[in-house]
């Protein structure tokens, strides 16, 4: 395996799960599949449509999202909204993300200081 492929594999491992936090956070204001895809890619999340669309349905079955069809416009769209439960879960996940970030930085600082002394 080349270095690039190794890196790509580890990056994928690291990013797995971040799409869930991001989607639940964005969908606090109702949105449909393609709009969410756009928002996420603008925010810097590399997510593919074929992962996102099935994921939305999975989150809905888990009760983290609700959906309703909006037929007011010419093109009917399925709008998803984060539920109270989904919001609580996203908040817990964000806390964990922040905690991990601090922990990783601490480790890095320790290593740097250990190297200097």
């Amino acid at each position: 395996m080349t270095m690039d492929a190794t890196l790509a594999g580890h990056l994928q491992e690291l990013r797995r799960g971040t799409v869930v936090v991001a989607s639940l956070t964005v969908l606090r204001t109702p949105g449909y599949g393609y709009s969410l895809l756009e928002s996420l890619s603008q925010a810097g999340f590399e997510v593919e449509a074929n992962t996102l669309y099935p994921l939305l349905r999975r989150l809905e079955t888990q009760g983290l999202l609700t959906s309703s069809w909006n037929t007011d416009e010419a093109r009917p769209r399925k709008f998803y909204t984060t539920t109270e439960q989904g919001d609580a879960l996203a908040s817990a996940l964000r806390d964990e993300w922040a905690r991990l970030d601090r922990a990783i930085n601490d480790l890095d600082d320790h290593a740097a200081m250990g190297g200097n002394s």
């Binding site: 393609y34 756009e38 093109r75 769209r77």
Partner: peptide
Amino acid sequence: PDIERELRASIADAVDS
């Protein structure tokens, strides 16, 4: 039926864009 409707809308949105 539900997946078809949603998938078609998503494809149409992406094409339009």
